[in-house]
């Protein structure tokens, strides 16, 4: 049982980084749908840099920077250029995924990939990022709900026109929220080769990016509920893996479906709560004469 708990806590980490990144962007009104691509990019950059520059920390920083770049492009294209968020998000999903694949191919080629050293345990058999992820979630809750700056960010996602009229720079808020959010997503991706597999592979993310969007909805776009909800998503993942290995009399394919099917079922309830930022996914044009 304690092993199940340990595995679940580890599995929570990527979900937390990616879902909190999604939440942070989303509370400012940027609906990022490139998570899957960003995680791949983070995984590839994290793996390659850790391998070549020697050290997971450097790899994580590099992954965060790569993610930040993609997030900046998304925020810039949807604020300054006012392009559709879903369309740009999908385009960046391809580009990030393609870049990840290309990077790996260029550096490693078709040889057997060397494994990178796993993140060292800190205490209780858990690595440092576990604590960072939980601390980040608590910090985000405090920052969003207990500081002036957090309130400003929330107002941009709820009613950018009101925020703008009070001198809050909507574009700048969205730019950095989208950038930091995407950086967190890439870190979530970089965690995968550093803890689970030791190597990069094109299928390494396996839908976790999409599940993280579901988690953001499930958590009502609130950091504290996302923290709680990530345990459920992680437990599903671990359960599916364990049942696959030990066998429970059901064909393993059906067990592997479990996280996705369970998420779909959960979504039915999550969307009923309807705790969604009012301007999620909508662009803001100050001089538009149609009042939103």
């Amino acid at each position: 049982m304690s092993e199940f708990l340990t595995l679940t806590i580890t599995a929570m980490v990527p979900f937390l980084f990616v879902a909190q990144g999604t939440m942070l962007s989303g509370r400012a009104g940027i609906f990022n749908v490139a998570q899957e691509g960003l995680m791949l990019l983070g995984a590839a950059v994290g793996y390659v840099v850790s391998l070549k520059a020697g050290g997971n920390v450097v790899g994580l920083v590099a992954a965060a920077l790569a993610g930040a770049l993609v997030g900046f492009i998304l925020s810039w294209a949807t604020t300054s250029l006012r392009l559709d968020q879903f369309v740009v998000g999908l385009a960046l999903f391809f580009l990030a995924g393609g870049t990840a694949s290309l990077l790996y191919r260029v550096v490693i080629g078709n040889d057997e990939p060397p494994r990178i050293a796993p993140l060292p345990d800190l205490v209780f058999g858990q690595d440092a990022l576990v604590f960072v992820a939980v601390a980040l979630s608590l910090f985000l809750w405090w920052w969003l709900y207990r500081t002036d700056a957090g309130m400003r960010l929330r107002s941009v996602g709820e009613n950018p026109k009101a925020a703008d009229s009070l001198g809050i720079n909507v574009t700048r808020t969205r730019l950095w929220a989208g950038t930091v959010g995407a950086a967190l997503m890439a870190v979530g991706g970089a965690y995968l080769p550093m803890v689970f597999s030791g190597v990069y592979a094109d299928g390494i993310v396996a839908g976790r990016g999409w599940l993280a969007i579901a988690l953001a909805f499930f958590g009502g776009w609130r950091p504290q509920f996302i923290l709680a909800g990530s345990a459920f998503f992680a437990a599903m993942e671990v359960l599916a893996q364990r049942a696959q290995v030990s066998g429970i009399g059901v064909p393993h394919q059906f067990v592997s479906m479990l996280p996705y099917v369970a998420t779909l079922v959960v979504m039915v309830f999550a969307f009923r709560w309807a705790l969604v930022p009012q301007f999620l996914g909508k662009n803001y044009d100050r001089e538009s004469r149609i009042v939103g």
């Binding site: 749908v33 879903f86 396996a206 839908g207 999409w210 599940l211 969007i213 579901a214 909805f217 064909p251 394919q253 059906f254 592997s256 479906m257 996705y260 099917v261 998420t263 779909l264 979504m267 039915v268 969307f271 009923r272 309807a274």
Partner: peptide, 26 residues
């Protein structure tokens, strides 16, 4: 799911892709 429960269609279609991989494998 989209019509009756307002489940975002991007999410539901993507999640069903992953389910379909397992169906095909089976």
């Amino acid at each position: 799911l989209m019509e009756s429960f307002h489940v975002n269609e991007i999410l539901s279609t993507v999640l069903l892709n992953f389910v379909s991989f397992e169906v095909l494998d089976y």
